[in-house]
Design a protein around this nucleic acid. Structure first.
Lengths: 220, 220
DNA sequence: TTATTTCTAAACACAATGTTCAGGAATTAT
DNA sequence: ATAATTCCTGAACATTGTGTTTAGAAATAA
């Protein structure tokens, strides 16, 4: 069912939901997901406990709705990158391959820092982290696919693509986890550059992009 | 207090603890940490519910004791690698730098697959994953440190070392997560080789090890 | 064997969950 | 503004899980 946001939502409803959500995040970051009770959430949000159950079935329900919108936001963010711009040729192009999309991802993290903190702590549900990793892997895979078909490059992967994508996504997650724990000491653009600096050569090598038929050059 | 395992442990005790632990892991993997109750654990372990509280204070207490011994095991495993063997010189040495220690880590994962599955799902506590990442980062840092001092090499990192270590550890975690989810499709040694193949050049580059004073060669 | 330790079931107080209901309050529609 | 609608509220309730205490049965160690 394609739910379109036609009906105006009652002010009270959106207010209530937002307050509950904020209260939950704050409490999770304060004392951990498990020990947060529904009553604490509603107290913090200045609402009756009954009201909670009017909107959500669970503590987890509330969290999952927030996570879902986060994840949707990340996907949209990554999807909005114009893949057509990847007409560049092998070497330099491969170096630049990851930068823009990674940059978008880091920006998204900065804009939703608290929620990412909660998700990456695995609070509530493992499904969330897993989903984030999947999304990033998929986005990178799409990017590579587009690049390959557009430039008629031959892929000669040194390790299974799955292995590489999951490692790369894992590296990203490890990096943003550190970044969030250190309270964002660098701007997202610089984080993206560092990520690129660390892994661009790996990417090029592991994918075997050095052996493009037309370019015909060896690496180095 | 230096607890030495002098006193023999009553058979019933070790049996009980092992059964409770196994029951918890099985149940977590079946239905997720949160929804597992103490009664379910003791039923599965064929023990009275009271017995549980004779040994552990909590569901979390039980899990944490298991995690602690896992983590200790990993540390021991990594520490037992003879760092003195790192007398090799720059290029080739850097390439081989990570392989043995990473191989040990993959073997440890294989031998404790179920527990790693539980930990990496972030079930129960985020502290565990965090701890694993820290341990790996530290182990790699130690390794690099030893290598640098022993070979009088100059380090010229292209990104902050923290950033690099956390990314590398994240990549490893992403990789073993995939590996466990896919039910260990490759042997640990091969996983280590793939890891090395993906990241050895990054490591060398990012650390700036190409510019060793004695060797004096450029990369490539 | 005897002495010790461990397991057990039953009972208990307590905390949190999730639901129902009637009426009061805020918001929207007319 | 007034009416109609929707939402919030507190109180009460059954239910489930927690963590503790007891006295006695059972396994293990000496």
């Amino acid at each position: 069912m394609p739910i379109i946001q036609n009906q105006k939502i009652d002010r009270r409803v959106s207010r209530t939901r937002r307050n509950l959500q904020d209260a939950l995040f704050a409490l999770i970051l304060e004392k951990g997901y498990d020990s947060v009770t529904v009553e604490e959430i509603t107290n913090r949000a200045d609402l009756g406990r009954t009201t909670f159950y009017l909107h959500y079935h669970d503590k987890e329900d509330l969290l999952m709705q927030a996570v879902r919108s986060l994840v949707d936001g990340l996907m949209e963010r990554l999807a909005q990158y114009p893949l057509e711009s990847l007409k560049l040729r092998s070497q330099t192009a491969t170096g630049e391959l990851l930068l823009p999309i990674i940059s978008l991802a880091f920006q998204h993290v900065e804009q939703n820092a608290d929620l990412y903190r909660v998700v990456l702590r695995g609070e509530g549900t493992y499904a969330a982290v897993r989903r984030v990793r999947q999304i990033l892997s998929q986005a990178i895979a799409d990017l590579i696919q587009h690049f390959v078909t557009r430039n008629h490059v031959v892929l000669n992967p040194q390790v299974p693509l799955d292995v590489f994508l999951n490692s790369l996504a894992g590296a990203w997650i490890g990096l943003i986890t550190w970044w969030l724990e250190e309270d964002l000491p660098y701007p997202p653009e610089q984080m993206a550059i560092m990520y690129q600096r660390m892994f661009m050569r790996s990417t090029r090598e592991v994918l075997g992009l050095g052996t493009a038929p037309e370019a015909g050059e060896e690496m180095g």
